[in-house]
Simulated assay, not measured.
Amino acid sequence: MSVQEWAATGAARGPDQSLALELVRVTEAAAIAAGRWVGRGERGSGRIAATHAMHEHLRSVPMRGTVAIGEEGTPILFRGEDAGLGEGPVCDLALTAGDGALAPLGDVPNSLAAIAVAERGALYDAPPGALVEKLAVGPGCGAVVDITRPIAENLWSIAAVKDIRVSDVVVGVLNRPRHRELVHAIRDAGARVHLLEGGDLAGAIAVARPASTIDVLLGSGGAAEAVIAAAALSCLGGALQVRVRLDGTDKTLHTGDLVRGEDILFCATGVTGSELLRGVRHHAGRITTQSIVVSSRPGTVRIVESEREQRLT
């Protein structure tokens, strides 16, 4: 095989920046599909609609992808399914068609349609449905925190790096009964709690954004979402630590354990509003979305505002 033929196969290439804007069209379509079901009282319909939209639009993306982390209990976008046009870079995907439960009676914030893409074999094989403890921080804080240390010590370390008082540190915590003691511990340490009502993916990524009101994310959540968040944070200069129970022992994994390789992409579109993105909005004759697109090489961050015609049928 000649050098030109080898390069054309994409056999040694992972995802590149040109793929990112193709993927954002996929998350936009999924978010719009999910958004049509928000507040309508039919639990699960939004995720189903988003999954089908994501699956359909992925078919035209120029890549040879494999779903490494996908939707559980569905006939499409399952772990091991091929994704993409069948030509272009070889890569693995971790995706969610609607992180966070869409409430049957209202618009629950923090719901995203998201895709992380990395080189083949670069994504951690997260156990389906597993919960892990998480600690996510922004740039400069990864080296001073340790998920195995007492909460107060980590919060004081974060405050020192940010040059703020610990009373000004804001901690994002998923609003679940299992986090009651965690919330008390954070407040006892002198920090403030910001409860996340939907999923924790948006909160985990928001800690690395300059305009975010969240300094750190703590608590337990899905292992699959941890891998997706790690992909975004690795591009944004943040850090994620998770503690997972394997073979009867606790094991700590870091960002580089969850997502390896040099070529990493992350795209997400807001379904409902969050600390990271606005949700889908319907106006007279048009639909608007807000997305974030990040890549590791070159290190770029784009906020994409899209508007499209909305036809009444």
Rank of each mutant, 00 (worst) to 15 (best):
V137Y: 00
V137N: 07
V137F: 07
V137H: 07
G138T: 09
G138H: 04
G140M: 09
G140I: 08
G140P: 09
G140D: 11
G140L: 08
C141R: 04
C141M: 13
C141S: 11
C141Q: 12
C141A: 14
A143M: 12
A143F: 10
A143P: 05
V144W: 06
V144M: 08
V144P: 01
V144S: 05
V145I: 14
V145K: 06
V145N: 05
D146P: 03
D146R: 12
D146G: 07
D146E: 14
I147P: 02
T148N: 12
T148F: 05
R149T: 11
R149P: 03
P150R: 13
P150H: 10
I151L: 13
I151F: 07
I151H: 01
I151T: 14
I151Q: 02
A152W: 02
A152C: 06
A152N: 06
E153N: 08
E153H: 09
E153Y: 08
E153V: 11
L155P: 01
L155D: 00
W156C: 03
W156T: 11
W156M: 11
S157F: 02
S157V: 07
S157P: 02
I158R: 00
A159L: 04
A159W: 00
A160V: 05
V161S: 01
V161K: 08
K162L: 13
D163A: 13
D163F: 04
D163Y: 04
I164T: 13
R165I: 02
R165D: 15
R165N: 12
V166T: 11
V166R: 05
V166G: 05
V166Q: 00
S167M: 04
S167W: 01
S167L: 00
D168H: 13
D168Q: 12
D168N: 11
D168W: 05
V169D: 00
V169F: 01
V170F: 05
V171K: 00
V171M: 00
V171E: 03
G172R: 01
V173H: 02
V173P: 03
V173L: 10
V173W: 01
N175C: 13
R176Q: 15
R176H: 15
P177A: 13
P177G: 13
P177E: 10
P177W: 10
R178S: 15
R178E: 15
R178Y: 10
H179G: 09
H179I: 11
H179W: 07
H179V: 10
R180T: 15
R180P: 06
E181W: 12
E181Q: 14
E181Y: 11
E181T: 14
L182R: 07
L182G: 05
L182K: 05
L182E: 06
V183T: 13
V183Y: 04
H184L: 14
H184S: 15
H184D: 12
H184I: 12
H184P: 03
A185Y: 05
A185T: 10
A185E: 13
I186K: 01
I186V: 15
R187H: 09
D188M: 11
D188P: 02
D188I: 08
A189D: 04
A189L: 08
A189C: 09
A189Y: 04
G190P: 00
A191W: 02
A191I: 05
A191Y: 03
R192H: 09
R192I: 07
R192G: 06
H194A: 09
H194V: 03
L195S: 12
L196S: 03
L196Q: 06
E197L: 15
